[in-house]
């Protein structure tokens, strides 16, 4: 690995940490500003296959299937007084690890894989939810900043153990 790529890997690690912080701090506008106009934000439904056949997720059904316009709608909705699913907001903690820079073209584009462990606690409920999975992200460089242009989140459960996905992955 070249020093240049090591530094870039570090840069994307910091990007993902910052993203996690914004979401955990419920700064959705701040988070949304990290998105590129061409965004594809997807979370396919994971399925049980017979053997080691891959991919073991569906290519035609999603828990999230948003472009920038729909993601904006979700962010706007959370700011209405009726978004009960997140009133009061869940306490979340996003642990991002195993950050691996794959394709990298300086100041153009990059693809980054990482793992996400998301802890969610709501109100006085003693149950907490854990959502774990892999992110396959793509970034586009624009106006001196890396913006997220694609996220594919591969969740580790076929039956998701949380009451809803009123939170972002």
């Amino acid at each position: 690995m070249t020093v240049e790529k090591m530094l870039a890997n570090y840069e994307f690690e910091q990007w993902l940490y910052k993203e996690a912080q914004l979401l955990d701090d419920i700064d959705f506008d701040g988070w949304f500003s990290l998105m590129h106009q061409s965004l594809i934000y997807q979370m396919p439904v994971r399925v049980n296959k017979e053997g080691t056949e891959r991919p073991d997720y569906t290519a035609d059904m999603y828990c999230f299937d948003d472009d920038i316009e729909l993601l904006k709608l979700r962010v706007d909705r959370l700011k209405t007084d009726y978004a009960w699913a997140e009133i009061p907001p869940s306490r979340t903690r996003r642990f991002v690890s195993n950050v691996k820079l794959d394709e990298y073209v300086p100041e153009q584009k990059a693809s980054v894989n990482s793992y996400l462990l998301l802890y969610r606690s709501r109100s006085t409920d003693i149950h907490h939810d854990l959502i774990s999975g892999e992110r396959k992200d793509e970034f586009t460089y624009e106006n001196g900043q890396w913006k997220l242009s694609k996220r594919l989140f591969i969740v580790d459960q076929t039956t998701i153990n949380t009451r809803n996905l009123a939170i972002f992955i």
Partner: peptide, 13 residues
Amino acid sequence: VLTFSPSGIFEQD
């Protein structure tokens, strides 16, 4: 997906 999936903005409330 937008309205009536786990992330659905009807469903979640």
